[in-house]
């Protein structure tokens, strides 16, 4: 029954893609298509990275509420960005070639993400509320340091920070896209190869050991994949906040299984539909310049609250 739903989702996605590429295109088709295709690939890449990272993160933390963003990753991104500009200065930061900016950003974020999530998982164990609390406190700390630094730097540099603080799909260039696609492609492939092990890991530590899997090394491998996926997509377009939570929650409603063979594609498809479809409606139908991520955040925030309040006591 569920594989059939995946085909439906794929059909909807294809429709969204066709509309996104074709709707309102006038003049030189070749030019319009190549311009839009670039943006489309960025959208798809980010969509699938974020959804996969969220599913993986929820599998090893064994809950359906936490996502890398909720655990303070976005605040961490702003902090690294601000520190980078604070040290380099706004001028030299913007003068860096985009590819260098991207690589520095990604590497810093990956290191920071591994440190953050590793600490949270080791200290918090599987106590959900302790992890949420620690994540919130970390995020608060990161934000305070960020705003402290932002007060010190001069207004021009502050503008550079602001410009990079929100997810934007307009500015992605081709070279960057190729690099990002290669990195996330490798991580996604590794995640897909792990799908059966992920099923076993999601049963719990004791069950995983009983079935011959080592939960600790599995968790570490998953964390590395998560940090690659979130770092690359965040360095590419900016923080995505509640996107992961929103799309994975919807995917869990459409395909309520624990099998990652179904769940990973389902979440990826829902995520791609949300981004591509949402962008299509905003850009083409509503002619709006409002960033899509604002709407996603409002919806995702509501989903987060609902999940937290409706959570069944264990």
């Amino acid at each position: 029954m569920y594989p059939k739903r995946l085909w439906w989702l794929l059909a909807v996605l294809c429709l969204c893609i066709a509309l996104y590429l074709g709707l309102g295109a006038r003049g030189n088709w070749g030019f319009v298509l190549s311009f839009r295709a670039n943006k489309l690939i960025a959208l798809l890449l980010v969509a699938i990275s974020v959804s996969t990272a969220t599913v993986l993160f929820q599998t090893i933390t064994r809950n359906h509420i936490l996502t890398p963003s909720v655990m303070g990753f976005d605040a961490l991104y702003l902090l690294t960005l601000t520190v980078l500009i604070f040290i380099l200065g706004g001028q030299s930061f913007t003068q860096l070639p985009e590819i260098a900016q991207f690589i520095v950003n990604t590497l810093l974020l990956m290191g920071a993400a591994l440190a953050l999530f590793g600490t949270l998982l080791r200290r918090g164990g599987h106590d959900l509320f302790r992890m949420i609390l620690t994540g919130i406190i970390f995020a608060g700390l990161f934000r305070s340091v960020t705003s402290f630094l932002q007060r010190i730097i001069d207004p021009n540099e502050f503008m550079v920070v602001q410009a990079n603080s929100f997810a934007r799909f307009g500015r992605v260039d081709t070279e960057l896209l190729t690099l990002a696609a290669a990195l996330t492609g490798a991580a996604l492939f590794a995640a897909w190869r792990m799908r059966h092990r992920l099923d076993v890991l999601s049963l719990g530590d004791e069950s995983a050991i009983n079935l011959g899997e080592a939960p600790k090394s599995g968790m570490f491998q998953v964390l590395v994949l998560v940090s690659i996926l979130v770092s690359v997509s965040t360095a590419l377009v900016g923080p995505m906040a509640f996107l992961g939570l929103l799309v994975v929650s919807v995917a869990r409603q459409i395909t309520p299984v624990i099998s990652h063979r179904i769940l990973l594609p389902s979440a990826g498809l829902v995520s791609a539909i949300t981004l591509v479809g949402g962008q299509m409606v905003l850009e083409r139908a509503l002619q709006s310049t409002m960033p899509l991520i604002v709407i996603v955040d409002v919806l995702g925030g509501l989903v987060f609250l609902t999940l937290l309040l409706r959570r069944k006591p264990r």
Binding site: R62, S202, L203, G204, E206, I258, R314
Partner: peptide, 9 residues
């Protein structure tokens, strides 16, 4: 080992 009757899954 029989896992504890958990609600893990």
């Amino acid at each position: 080992i029989l896992p504890q009757a958990s609600d893990a899954a």
